[in-house]
Structures are given as C-alpha cells and as structure tokens.
Design a protein around this nucleic acid. Structure first.
Lengths: 240, 240
DNA sequence: CGTTGAGTTGACCATCGTCAACAGGAGTGG
DNA sequence: CCACTCCTGTTGACGATGGTCAACTCAACG
C-alpha cells in the first residue's frame, strides 16, 4: 500500500467547497473573506494519501503546498546513517510549505489515511502577492510553528524521558482539543517509533515509560491512544 | 554592570544612517529601497546593552522589536526548576520580534556588548501594514529561523556530544562567514555554560569534548574562540 | 496455521551527568 | 606588590539514565 499514488479525489466531492471545509476556520484560509474563497477554490485540489504514503521529500523542488484536512502527517529529517528526527506532526488545519521556499526542508508522509487541499506553489504564491492579509496569516502560522519548535528544543535538550512523554501527551491532547473538542482520551495514530524519534528516545524507552505511567495509574493504554487518568500529574511533569 | 540600564546612544551618532548601516544588506531592512529608509530611520533608536544585560524577558509584553547591529544575544527558555535551554544566538543582522506577537516567547540578554536598532512594535507593525515586501522579508526571516530550529532539533534529539560540538562550531563558522568573511578561527563570545545549554549538554561534557578535539588536533583552543585545524573532520561529524 | 510487524519486557552496558578538586586570570584591597 | 577572592574552565572518579541486544507476546493477514 505504501507505493500507492496520491489520488485526486473526484468521486463524490469533485468540487470541495471551502465554505463547508471542516478546517477552514483553524487554517490559513480563515484569512480570506467568503467572497475571496473562489480564487482559492479554483486552484485547490483535494488530494488523498494512503497510510505511509509520501507527500514530499526533503530537498526536493517545491511544486505544491498543502493544507491538511484529515489525518496526521509525520515531518522528519534523516541523518546519513539513518538516524531520524521527527520535527513535527501536522494535524488537520496545519499548512505544509509555510516557507514558500524552493525546496522542502524535511520529508513528510502520511501516518494514517490523510486528505489534503493541495495548491501549486506558483499559483499560491501569486495569490499571496495580491493578498497581504493572507501573507500575514501565513506569517502567524510560521511564527507559531517556530514557537512550537523552540518548545520542542527545551523538551529535547533539557527534559527526562518521563517528562518528554508527559509533555508529548499533554501537548497532543491540547492540539486535538482545538479540533475535536476536549477529551481525556488522546488519539495516538503514530507508532512508538515515531514517538521515540520525535522525543529523542528509543522505542524501548517510550514503551517502558508508557508502561510505568500506566502501572502508576497516570494513564490507561487503549487501542491507538491513551486515556489520561491523572492529567494533573502529567501537566506537572510537562510544566514549563 | 549587569544592572546597567539600556542607553539611547546619542553622543556621536544620534541619527544613525540606515544607508551606512553595516548590517542593512543582511537584515530585514534590505527589503526597503533607499527612498523608503527614511520612514524606518525616523522610528529607529540606537540602543546599546552591556554584557549580560537583559533585552527582554519571556512572557513580557512586546513593546519593542530589535535589529541586532553588533554583538551576540543569547535567547533562552527556563524551566521552573532552573534548567535552561538556549534556543539560539542572535548575531548582527538578526531580528528579534519576528512574531510581532503580544508577548516574547523567550528571554534575551547580551552575551558581550551589544548594540541594536530598536523600534516600537506598534510603529513597526504599522509600517508593515503598508509594505507587503517588508512583511515578505520578515516572513522569510521567520521561516529561516524555523529551519534553523528544526536543524537544532536534530542536533538535540539525535546527535552525540562530539557531533553536537562539531555541528555547533561549523554552524557558527558559517554564520560568521556571511558577516565577517571566511575564517578558520571561530569566535566564541559565549561561555561554556551557554554552549552546554544550547546543545543539551553539561559544561563538563562541553569542556571535555573540546579538550579531546584539541588533543586530537581537530581544533586549537584560543582565547574567546577556537581555530578549526581539521575542518573536514568537523564537517564530517556535522554532516546532515 | 505460519509469517510478519508492532509492542513489551528484561539483562546488560555506555554515554553522559554529578560531584569534587584544582588551575589560572581578573579584580580588589591591605 | 602581593594576598585574597571570585569566576570560569578543566580534569578525574563515580554513577544513573537511557541505549543496546535479545527474547517474547499478540494481532493482522495471507
């Protein structure tokens, strides 16, 4: 399945409507008024990706930028010897290609099934030239990403394994909360290896730490996620 | 000296001239044509900081944004128990306040003596509203910072102590090269503790690793810096 | 029913952190 | 001028956190 090509979704919603879009209000598109959405719709392509399918590779030419509408995308960098660092997980509403640069700064592939709203970089860049408020929105997104990256630098450089896991769970819960409402169950569609590569740990340490937190009744491990039994304890561990 | 107030430099260059500015071409100001610089000059204040003096604190209201013109600024976040992560070093030409947000995301203080070009956030933001090309330049700077932060995530999460030091030295050499020309001697105005807090190490590990690299003739430790005796070896260690 | 891949757990170990002692330079005051 | 302190940096001994290697379980799937 991992070799499937990205498909232009065309069956039942050939012309997705921006106004109906579930993520419009949390994504860059919110910068545009209803009457401006036409220009965006005209250049948007609904594109679906199968689990593990690649959206783009590091250092490749940027032909498209993406707005994630469903699913989770893994963003990562590789060292020559195969070590991997995941620099982020993109959730629905997140924008890939903020830099509008010539080449991608990292690899991106779908964790589970993913749908995106895809734009040719050139067309999007031109639209940007005429819409400073859209550029400002893009800039806000970029600085928000920068802020997340700096928080993650603290996690990677100065936190213990247990704190890393707690920070990850609490952070992900808060991100999901913006999208799907508050819940004590945190969906973890990514693998243990992904979590390890995000937190600068090994898969064994992630597994052991989750097991210990479960043994101590701070969390309950459920299929594809965890339930936070003692959010306070976790928030304490994650506290900035 | 660390309690000195920031001073408005006014003696010999009360009205600094943007056209003469050493860092104009590498800083955000390069987005403006000569005839647009007047508006910038009108709102700029040359401001100097003594070694260790604070430019701003995390979570404080953003009244000013800064363009570093001389010296090095340490940017860092603190955990409640005092652990510190340096998220970056700002060199001449770097801009502090990219986010144009309501509060600073990190603390900033001068490593050695620092001079900056300071703008009221409000005035700068207004200027931005009328100058989309300046906003675009700011956005480029923000995404460049994001890219550096992601590189640093790889360093913090997936590199050994020796690789971290090598990556730091090579990276800093390359940044100085843009400003002062190519040199095999890398100026290190920051302390060992600063380097440790940037790389997620302890001061002892930094000291030991530098000593070992010196013993193995990869570097030569000189006052306030190191000379790269075997750049190839270091670049190999730093290789992405 | 065998294979595969993800996850868990245990035993052992190495890298890096902790703690402590010491060296050298800058600044200060007798 | 010299003794003294303070601060930064270096080095050594030891230890703990997290990594490595290996065995095992379990679910999915052909």
């Amino acid at each position: 399945m991992s070799t499937l090509q990205a498909v232009r979704v065309s069956c039942c919603h050939a012309k997705e409507n921006c106004l109906d879009c579930k993520v419009r209000l949390v994504s860059v598109c919110a910068a545009l008024e209803s009457h401006e959405l036409g220009a965006l719709e005209a250049m948007a392509q609904q594109t679906a990706f199968a689990p593990k399918e690649t959206l783009f590779l590091q250092d490749h030419r940027v032909d498209f930028v993406y707005n994630v509408t469903e699913g989770v995308v893994r963003l990562y960098k590789l060292l020559p010897d195969g070590r991997r660092q995941i620099v982020g997980f993109a959730l629905p509403g997140d924008f890939l290609g903020l830099a509008m640069a010539d080449s991608y700064g990292f690899c991106a592939d779908a964790v589970g099934s993913v749908t995106t709203c895809r734009f040719s970089r050139q067309a999007f860049s031109s639209l940007l030239d005429g819409k400073p408020h859209l550029l400002r929105r893009l800039h806000e997104f970029a600085t928000h990403e920068l802020s997340l990256a700096q928080d993650q630098m603290v996690v990677l450089g100065r936190r213990t394994a247990e704190e890393k896991i707690a920070t990850f769970l609490v952070g992900l819960r808060n991100r999901w909360a913006r999208l799907t409402g508050v819940s004590v169950t945190v969906s973890l569609p990514m693998s243990r290896q992904d979590i390890a590569d995000f937190l600068g740990l090994t898969i064994e340490t992630v597994s052991r730490t989750l097991s210990r937190l479960a043994r101590e009744k701070a969390i309950l491990i459920v299929p594809d996620g965890v339930r936070l039994l003692d959010p306070q304890r976790l928030e304490q561990l994650a506290e900035t």
